[in-house]
């Protein structure tokens, strides 16, 4: 483990990504200390440009502090991203493992399910789910998970296909291990490394999907994420484009950092695929 960490830190870009993420995480945790009270309250005249005294990112059309909203948006955006990605990873690893481990009916059904979700345009399906069940936070998180597990499943399936015929698996089976024990105890620990790298990226993917949904104004109306801030600023591009630009830059920075970390993890955990 320390070895992995040491090799990871040799990759300067990945380390930089990790540092940025750490900072973003810190901001998310300390948001109520940095900006106590409701971040959505009106504090100043509307549309103060950035670098105004006391409001480094300026104020929006209602006179709310952009910096306070973005700092608090860090919490919701990261929370939704991590929760949705966790859902996607749980579904993806399970279905990918089933598709790769089992031949026959179970394997091909799971394989077909992967293909199915690869076919349906994710955002279209997401909008449909949200329009049917409502945009409550929990539904949004689950729905993003449901539309984004497919790439994780494909990778897990490929790994399981590569490992399932190895001698140690056959030996385990000869010893009478159950399928569940073989899947979770024997194959998964070997197959998990590339999946971890992709999982980091799936947090980035979930953040992007959620920001698209909130940008359209179809996310949970009681939660203020970065995507929603961009969406709210959309009408102001002629007068105050920074209202869109700044929260968007926060998304870019976070996803950028996650991609760098994912690349670094991939190089360390999956040396064979070094680009």
């Amino acid at each position: 483990m320390t070895d992995v960490f040491l090799r990871f830190t040799q990759n300067r870009l990945a380390t930089a990504g990790l540092a940025i993420l750490g900072l973003i995480g810190l901001i998310a945790l300390s948001a109520p200390l940095l900006f106590p009270g409701d971040p959505l309250r009106i504090v100043a005249p509307a549309l103060q440009p950035p670098l105004t005294d006391g409001y480094p990112f300026g104020t929006d059309a209602l006179g709310r502090d952009m910096l306070a909203m973005i700092v608090h948006g860090t919490r919701t955006t990261l929370l939704i991203g991590v929760a949705a990605a966790t859902t996607a990873i749980l579904i993806g690893v399970t279905i990918g493992a089933l598709a790769g481990y089992y031949g026959g009916v179970i394997g091909s059904l799971a394989g077909r399910l992967i293909e199915l979700f690869q076919t349906i345009p994710g955002l279209v399906f997401l909008l449909a789910i949200v329009s049917f069940v409502g945009p409550q936070l929990i539904f949004v998180v689950l729905a993003i998970g449901i539309v984004s597990w497919e790439s994780i499943a494909r990778l897990t399936r490929a790994e399981f296909l590569a490992w399932r015929k190895r001698d140690f698996v056959l030996a385990g089976r000869a010893m009478g291990m159950t399928d569940a024990r073989l899947i979770f105890g024997e194959i998964l620990p070997n197959a998990i490394a590339p999946v971890i790298a992709v999982s980091t990226l799936s947090i980035a993917g979930a953040i992007l999907v959620e920001s698209g949904l909130s940008f359209l104004g179809l996310g949970d109306p009681s939660v203020s994420t970065w995507g929603r801030l961009v969406g709210e600023g959309r009408g102001l591009i002629r007068t105050a484009w920074y209202v869109c630009a700044i929260p968007g830059a926060a998304i870019v920075l976070t996803v950028f950092a996650l991609s760098l970390v994912s690349d670094g993890l991939n190089d360390v955990l999956n040396p064979g695929s070094r680009r």
Binding site: I251, L253, V255
Partner: peptide, 21 residues
């Protein structure tokens, strides 16, 4: 990596701000 990280809608708005407005 930067282009991957930039959501399409945000990139679109930034392009509008630059080339349109």
């Amino acid at each position: 990596v930067f282009l991957f990280a930039a959501p399409g809608f945000w990139l679109g708005i930034m392009l509008i701000v630059l080339f349109g407005v």
